[in-house]
Design a protein around this nucleic acid. Structure first.
Lengths: 334, 334
DNA sequence: AATCCGATTGGAAACGTTTCCACCTTCGCC
DNA sequence: GGCGAAGGTGGAAACGTTTCCAATCGGATT
C-alpha cells in the first residue's frame, strides 16, 4: 500500500498539461487523441484512480443506493437485495447494504445513516415504524422508498403487500384440509409485519370456526425464536395445524413438532410465509405464502430510479398480492 | 422532501456569524455557550445536517468500512458481518456490505468498489483469487484485510483457517464411526475454499483406506446446487457417508439422500462445514466443522482498526483452527 | 492605569474533482 | 490571403466542510 494516493493534479503535472485537460482526457470528451494518450500514460504510471469523494462533491452524486434492513440474516432481505441490485446495476448504481444490526435502535441508526450517508437514495424495510421515523423519511435529503408498509397518506413512496390477507389464505388452506385445531406463531407484535399478520389471523379466526385456536409470540423472526415459541405453544395443548408468520419461524416450529415425536404434515400441518429458498428445500418443503420479495425489491428499485432522476416526482405506492405456495409441509405434494 | 438541503454557510448566515464559528459551534470545541445556542437554533430551523461528502473531503476519512463478499446469501458471511460490526461500531465506524452479486466478475467489481468506494478500509472474503486481485489489494488506496486465504508472502493482512484440516477431521470422524464408503461433495474447484477443501480430502483419502471414495462438484456453494450434485453422486453407487464442503451443500445432500428413501444418519452420515445456525436447527442437526466465522470476523475487524489508525502498520496474518461439532447428522447426539 | 494573557471570533485556505468560460491554434472556404 | 468556424487547451471557480492563523475583545494582574 503506497503511503499517499495520486491525485489528478499530480497526473496533470506529470503529463505536463493542465488540470482541466487531464480531467477531460480521462473522463469527459473534447480531448485530442494525443492528449488522451499522454494523460493515460501518466495516469497509469502513477496508478491513478479518481477519488470518489472529490468527484461526488463536485457532481453531487454518488451512484450509490443504500438498502437498509434490520436483519440481513433473514433470507427474504437477501432476495430483495438481489432484485434491487439487478434493477439498479445496469443504471450504474452500486447497492450497499446497511444492516442496522440491533433492531431496538434501528430507527435512530437509519436516520443517521441517511443524513450522513454516501448515497443518492435509500430503500428501507423497517421492522418497526413510528412517527419520528416517518417524519425523518419525509424530510430526508435523498429519495427514500419504503418496503413493507403502505404509507399512502404521507407522501412517501412505498411498496407493500397484503400479509394479513396472506395469513388468511394460509388459514383457509389448512381449514380446507380438515384441520380444526390451529396455532398461530407470530413474531413481535410491535413490528410492522407482526402487527399486520396478527390482524390477518384475528380477522380470519373470526370468520372460520375452529375447535381450538391458540397463539404465541416469538421474540424475533428467527429460527431459534420460532423453536422456543413453538415449544410453548405446543405444550399448551394438541394442535393439528401451525401457521407461522414467516418461514424461519416455521422451520423452528417443525423442529418443535418433531421433538414431541409428531410428524409434519401428518400430525401437524405447518405453513410459513415469504416463500424463501430455504423453505423450498427444507424437509418437508414448506407450504408458504409468497409475498413476492423479488417483485417488491424490483418495484422499489424502479421507483428509486424514477426519484433519482427527478426528486420531485410524485410519491408512488405499489402493492403486491400474496400467493399461497402449497408444498409438503401441509401434505400438498406427493 | 425539500428541494435543496441546507449548507453550513446558510446556517452561518442565518445565525449571523462566520462559517468557522458555525462549524466549531456544531461540531468542534472552542465556542462560547451563547454562540453554540445561536448556531444550534439556526441549524434546527433550517433542518441542517452535515454533508458527509464535504466533511469527508476535508477530513480524509469516511468512518465507513466495507465488507465485500461474493454471496451475502451464505449465512457464514452474515455471521462474519455481525462480528465485524460488533468490533467496529464502538469505534465509530459503520459497516456497509457490498455484495459483488455475480461471482464471475467478482474480482473486477471488487477492485472498482475499492478504488471508488466511500470507505476507509475494506474486509474482503473473495471466493476466487488471482494475481490481478492480489496486486490490486497490494496497491489499494485503503487498508484491506482478506478473510479466507493466507497470503503471508505478499504483505497482505489476512485471517485464514485450516479448512483442509477441517475436512480431514470430518473424514476421520466418519471413519471412526465405521463408515467405509465415503462421498465428498465439494463446491467449485476454482474457488479458494473449494481448492483448499479438495486438498484436505485428497490428503486424508490418501491416509485412510476406504472401501469406496467418490466425489462430485457442485456448481456453487448453495443448497440447490448441493441437492443436484448429491443426486449425481448418489446415483453412481451406494455410500454410507457424505462429507460436504459447506453447510448449505450438506443440507442439499440430506435432501438428496432422503429422496432415495434412505435416512440420515442411519443409512448415510452427513457432515457440513461452517457451523451455521441453519445447520444447528436443521433436522437432523448437522455435524459440522466450525471454522470460527465469528472469531475470524472479529480478528479481521481488529486488524482493520489497527490499520485504520496506522496505515503503514505491518501486515498481519492470523489463523483460526477448525473444530468439529458433532451432532445428529452423524448420529452423534441421542 | 497599562500590559499581558486567555478566550472567542472571522478570514482564508485546503481537500480532489468537474466544467464554464475565454483564449489560441488550425483548418477550410471564399 | 484573409476571415470565420471549429476544435483543443488552460485558468479559475465551485461543490461543503474543517482548521490554521491572525485579530479582537474582555478581564485580571502588576
Amino acid at each position: 500500500m503506497t503511503s499517499t494516493r495520486a491525485t489528478l493534479l499530480q497526473v496533470a503535472e506529470r503529463a505536463g498539461v493542465s488540470l482541466a485537460s487531464t480531467s477531460r482526457a480521462l473522463h469527459g470528451t473534447g480531448a485530442s487523441p494525443a492528449m488522451v494518450e499522454r494523460v493515460r500514460t501518466a495516469a497509469a504510471e502513477l496508478g491513478y484512480s479518481a477519488d470518489a469523494i472529490g468527484r461526488s462533491l463536485r457532481l453531487k452524486k454518488t451512484f450509490q443506493v443504500a438498502f437498509a434492513v434490520a436483519d440481513i440474516g433473514n433470507p427474504v432481505y437477501v432476495e430483495m437485495m438481489r432484485a434491487i441490485h439487478e434493477v439498479l446495476a445496469p443504471h450504474g448504481y452500486r447497492v450497499v447494504v446497511m444492516s442496522t444490526g440491533d433492531t431496538a435502535t434501528s430507527t435512530t441508526e437509519l436516520v443517521r445513516s441517511l443524513n450522513s450517508g454516501f448515497v443518492d437514495g435509500m430503500v428501507v424495510s423497517p421492522l418497526r415504524t413510528d412517527d419520528r421515523l416517518i417524519r425523518e423519511i419525509q424530510q430526508a435529503p435523498v429519495p427514500v422508498v419504503v418496503i413493507g408498509r403502505a404509507l399512502d397518506d404521507r407522501g412517501i413512496s412505498s411498496v407493500s403487500t397484503d400479509s394479513a390477507g396472506g395469513i388468511g389464505a394460509a388459514v383457509r388452506h389448512l381449514h380446507a384440509l380438515g384441520r380444526r385445531r390451529v396455532g398461530f406463531l407470530n413474531g413481535p407484535l410491535d413490528t410492522t409485519p407482526g402487527a399486520a399478520r396478527q390482524r390477518g389471523f384475528d380477522a380470519v379466526a373470526g370468520e372460520i370456526a375452529f375447535d381450538r385456536a391458540d397463539q404465541e409470540v416469538a421474540g424475533d423472526f428467527t429460527v431459534t425464536a420460532g423453536l422456543e415459541a413453538a415449544r410453548r405453544l405446543l405444550a399448551r395443548g394438541k394442535l393439528d395445524a401451525l401457521v407461522a408468520a414467516n418461514d424461519l419461524l416455521a422451520i423452528g416450529a417443525i423442529r418443535a413438532v418433531r421433538e414431541l415425536g409428531l410428524s409434519v404434515p401428518e400430525d401437524v400441518a405447518v405453513t410459513g410465509m415469504d416463500d424463501t429458498e430455504i423453505g423450498r428445500v427444507f424437509q418437508p418443503s414448506l407450504t408458504s405464502v409468497s409475498l413476492g420479495s423479488t417483485e417488491r425489491g424490483r418495484a422499489a428499485a424502479r421507483i428509486m430510479l424514477r426519484l433519482a432522476d427527478d426528486p420531485d416526482h410524485a410519491a408512488q405506492q405499489i402493492t403486491v398480492g400474496p400467493e399461497l405456495m402449497v408444498r409438503e409441509s401441509t401434505g400438498g405434494v406427493r
